[in-house]
Design a protein around this nucleic acid. Structure first.
Lengths: 144, 144
DNA sequence: CCTTGCCTTGACGCCGACGTCAAGGACTAC
DNA sequence: GTAGTCCTTGACGTCGGCGTCAAGGCAAGG
């Protein structure tokens, strides 16, 4: 099959396929007229790539899975290198989720405090003030 | 003070300050020689920006807070527009964390299954490799 | 022959928040 | 005067994964 059909069957675009090829991830055979030619195996490789991409894996991280399939293994994650990617991704996810949870807690606290102060300023009357309103912010250097 | 000192006191760079100015977020007065000139109020605005940036807010999302401070309010989040940003960010964080949790679960399951299959495929029958592997198979082990 | 549609390569655009030169002006110290 | 440090504007680079033309080749139908 040609690039357009493969792209459609895998739910992606021809541009993405050419990009994968430029990265050496999914090279294509060529027909006499220069057209890229793919088979069902390429579709499987591509599906593996897309599945991992949907999980948030970077392209380079999908390479071990693709290589594994191309080596004849039944699944992309039948090889140690793929499992390593899984493990690294899990650690990465745990770290990221932990950071986001911390940020969520902080932002939630800030919102609650700010809403309290806003509400207290409206009805008109003396209100208690929290001493923690200033300087409670920490720079944990979360790079998003 | 000049741009270098402000950058250092706020823990950022002169390039970042020029960028903020180019975005209209933190304009500077100019000395006769053309040098940018800042005061303590600018430092406060900048600290507000940096704090939010560290939380993962985009630059545009810090604008309401900066405007709020510049309008004379005691805190950057003393204004309704700032609270709206807080709320949107919370919703955004919740959605993102939820997605990441789902991905984590999926990837964890894939890893457990692939490890199991790899162990079963070993010559001489499956051998338990370590306790963590068994734990990951039975529970949703976060133990690393 | 002409149009239509798929294909080719090449190259710039995009997003965010700056980093990193480059070339030159300003000011201080000696 | 000159060395050193700070400042100025301008402009290109970065990262990932493509999107979006542009210009042209190839195959098939009318």
């Amino acid at each position: 099959m040609r690039i357009g059909e493969l792209a459609e069957r895998a739910g992606t675009t021809t541009r993405a396929l050419r990009y994968y090829e430029s990265r050496g991830l999914l090279p294509a055979r060529r027909a006499v007229n220069g057209y890229r030619t793919y088979d069902e195996d390429d579709l499987r490789l591509l599906q593996q790539i897309r599945t991992l991409q949907d999980f948030g894996f970077e392209l380079e991280e999908t390479r071990p899975f693709v290589d594994c399939l191309r080596a004849g293994h039944p699944a992309g994650d039948s090889c140690p290198a793929s499992l390593d990617v899984y493990r690294r991704k899990l650690a990465e996810l745990d770290a990221l989720i932990g950071q986001l949870d911390a940020v969520r807690t902080q932002v939630g606290a800030q919102l609650a405090r700010a809403e309290l102060e806003a509400g207290a300023a409206l009805p008109g009357g003396p209100e208690p003030r929290c001493e923690l309103t200033q300087g409670a912010l920490t720079h944990d250097g979360l790079t998003d």
